[in-house]
Nucleic acid binder design. Structure first.
Lengths: 340, 340
DNA sequence: TTGTAAGCGTTATCAA
DNA sequence: TTGATAACGCTTACAA
C-alpha cells in the first residue's frame, strides 16, 4: 500500500519544519496566514493525508465510535444505525459496527475487543441473552463513554435512550381491548430484556385496568429460532383457551404470528387481532396490514450520537449522567386490529 | 479514558525488557518457553491489551476492513454485511461501515476518507448515481485492496462478486411469459448500475426469444424517491397500453409496485404478475405472496471477506485479479406470478 | 512566527 | 535467549 506523502516529506517540500506544517494544517493561531496558505495549497497539491494511527496514538483518541447491535436484519436497528451515522459523519467520526446475533458470548468477545481503546466510545443495545453484565461493567470501569439504547442495561450508571415502552405497550393493549379483545397475549423475546419488562408491565396494567385477569400462559416467552416461535404461537392458537388478541413486543414475533396464523384456520383480525412494536416500512403491505407501534429509531440514533460526540469533544462539560431519556413511539392503526 | 497497562509497564512488572515481552506475546521462537509462560500469565493478570494504534502505526496495517453500501435498510445489503462480518470476526478483523444513501457525493467523501490508510481494504457496492469513477480509480491507484460486489465497477481491474444477473433476469422474464404475460415491464433504479444493465439484457433476450417486441416505455427508470416511484408505476398501470407483468430489478421497486397497484383496481396476479429480485424474509407474507429471485447474499459477503483476508495475510500469493465471480440466485415462485 | 526535540506504544534490528 | 535502541508519523512543550 502506498500511503502517499507524510508530514515530514510535505515539510521538506515546503522547506519548513514538520511542526510548523502540522500547526498550519491544524489552523493554529501561532502561524502566519501566509505560511498557512502555502502549506495548505501544497498539502492539497501533494494530496497529503495525515496518518490516522499516528494521530490516534499521539492524541489517544481515534475519532471512532463502536456500535453494537443484536441483529442487523432488523428495521429498527438499521434505522438507529443510520441515525448514528448521520451525526457521526457530520463530525468526522467513523463507525465500527458489530452484530452480536443475540449471543452473549459474542457480545462479551466484542466488548473485550473494545477494551483496548480502538473506539472512543460505545453505543449499544444488549443481546436478549445478556443477564450477566460483568463485561459491560468492565467496559464502563475503563472509563470508555458508553451509552445504551432500546435494550438498556439499567445497572450501568450512564445515559440511556429508549422509547416510552410502558406507555406504548399500555396504549397498544388498551387499543386491542377497545377493539373487542378479551384475551390478549403478550409475545416476548426474553424476560431478561429491559424492554420486555417495561412493555410487559404496560400490557399487564392495561389488562388490569380493563378488569381482565392476565393469564400466565398468555405471556409467551419466545426463542431465537424463527420456526420454534411459529410453532409455539401456533400451539397457543390451537389450544382450547386461545387468545383473541396479540401484542408482539418485537417485530419478528409479529411476523412469526402471521406465519403461525397461516397454519391455522383463524383469520386476522376477525379471530385474532395483532399489534406489534415494529419499524417495518411495509407493514401496510402485509395481509392484513399490521397495526404498529413505531419507535423513533432515527431520532434515537441521532440523539445517542449527539450526546456521545458532545461528551467526546467537551469531556469536562458533559457527563453521561445516569438517566433514561424517553422519546415517544407512534401507534399506527391498520387492518390487523379492526373490530368486526 | 484509562487505557490499562502498556507494554513497558508490563515489562517493568516482569523485570524484562519491553522487546522481550513483545516477542513473548507474539510467540516468537527466540524466546524460551519459560519466559513465554511467565509473560503470558502476567499479561493476563494485568489484563494487558496492546494499543491498536501503536501497532497499526508500526506495522502499517489496521486489521480493519471498510465496507461501503448504498443503503442499510435493505435485506440484501444487511445479509451481505453479516456474511462479511462472519469471516472478518473469525480472523480478528474489524469493520468500518459506511452508508452512501445512494448519493455519489457522499460516496466520494467516504472514499476520500479511506485514502489515508484507516482501513486495510475496501469492499463496496456503488451508489446508483455513480457514473464518474475517478474517486474509485484514485482509491485503486493507492494500492488499497478493493473488491466490488453486486453493483460493481467494471472499469476497475479487480475481483468482483455478483449473482448470475443476466441468467436470473432471463429466467424470471421467461417465467412471466410462461404464466401468460404478453407485455412485461422492467423496473430499474438507474441505467448506470452494472446490475441494471445485466438484468435488463436478460429481460430483453427473454422477450425476444418469445417473439415479444420490447416496448421502450416498459423499461421504467425509477428514482430514489419512494413516492415518485409509486406514482410512476401507477401511471404506467393506468395507461391504455399497460403491462401485464413486471420484473423489478430491485426489491424496493417491487414494493413500490405493490403500493402502486393498491391505487388502481388491478389485482395481482390476475391483472398483473410481479417477480422481483429480493432478499425479503417475508415475501411470503405479502398479499399476494411475492415471487422472488433471491441472491446468495450471505455467501457473497463471506466470499468477499475470504478473498480480501487471503490477500491481506498473504499478499504475495494472492492477487485480486480482474475477474467477475458469479454465484447463482434462486427463484422462488409464489402467488404473485400465478397463472389464471 | 518558526524550529528542535520528546514522546505516544509498538515491533524490528542489532548487539550482547 | 534477552536487552538497548531506533523507527513508525504525528502533536506539543520548549527554545529561538
Amino acid at each position: 500500500m502506498n500511503n502517499g506523502v507524510n508530514l515530514k516529506e510535505l515539510a521538506a517540500e515546503l522547506k519548513l519544519a514538520p511542526s510548523t506544517v502540522s500547526r498550519a494544517l491544524n489552523d493554529s493561531w501561532e502561524i502566519s496566514e501566509a505560511t498557512k496558505k502555502k502549506v495548505i495549497s501544497m498539502a492539497e497539491k501533494l494530496n497529503y493525508q495525515p496518518n490516522p494511527f499516528a494521530r490516534s496514538l499521539r492524541e489517544n483518541k481515534s475519532k471512532t465510535i463502536a456500535v453494537i447491535i443484536p441483529e442487523r436484519i432488523n428495521n429498527f436497528f438499521a434505522q438507529v444505525m443510520d441515525g448514528i451515522e448521520n451525526i457521526a459523519q457530520e463530525h468526522g467520526y467513523h463507525l465500527l459496527v458489530y452484530n452480536t446475533h443475540e449471543d452473549v458470548d459474542r457480545e462479551k468477545k466484542i466488548v473485550n475487543l473494545l477494551l483496548n481503546g480502538r473506539a472512543d466510545a460505545v453505543v449499544m443495545s444488549v443481546s436478549s441473552q445478556t443477564s450477566d453484565i460483568s463485561h459491560l461493567e468492565k467496559l464502563y470501569a475503563r472509563g470508555l463513554p458508553l451509552i445504551f439504547f432500546d435494550r438498556i442495561c439499567t445497572d450501568i450508571p450512564t445515559t440511556k435512550f429508549i422509547t416510552n415502552d410502558y406507555e406504548s405497550s399500555y396504549q397498544g393493549t388498551k387499543h386491542l381491548i377497545q377493539q373487542g379483545c378479551k384475551k390478549v397475549a403478550f409475545l416476548m423475546l426474553s424476560k431478561e430484556l429491559s424492554i420486555t419488562k417495561e412493555r410487559h408491565r404496560g400490557y399487564l396494567d392495561a389488562l388490569l385496568e380493563a378488569g381482565l385477569s392476565p393469564e400466565p400462559a398468555f405471556s409467551l416467552n419466545c426463542s431465537m429460532c424463527e420456526e420454534q416461535n411459529i410453532e409455539l404461537i401456533r400451539e397457543m392458537l390451537w389450544s382450547n383457551n386461545r387468545p383473541d388478541g396479540i401484542l408482539a413486543s418485537v417485530e419478528k414475533l409479529a411476523l412469526a404470528t402471521y406465519q403461525a396464523v397461516k397454519r391455522t384456520k383463524l383469520r386476522i383480525p376477525q379471530d385474532l387481532k395483532v399489534i406489534s412494536f415494529s419499524n417495518m416500512g411495509i407493514a401496510g403491505l402485509l395481509e392484513p396490514s399490521l397495526t404498529t407501534i413505531t419507535q423513533p429509531a432515527i431520532t434515537i440514533g441521532q440523539e445517542c450520537a449527539k450526546l456521545l460526540i458532545k461528551k467526546l469533544t467537551k469531556p469536562k462539560q458533559n457527563d453521561l449522567i445516569d438517566q433514561v431519556i424517553t422519546i415517544p413511539s407512534k401507534i399506527t392503526i391498520r387492518s390487523s386490529t379492526l373490530a368486526e
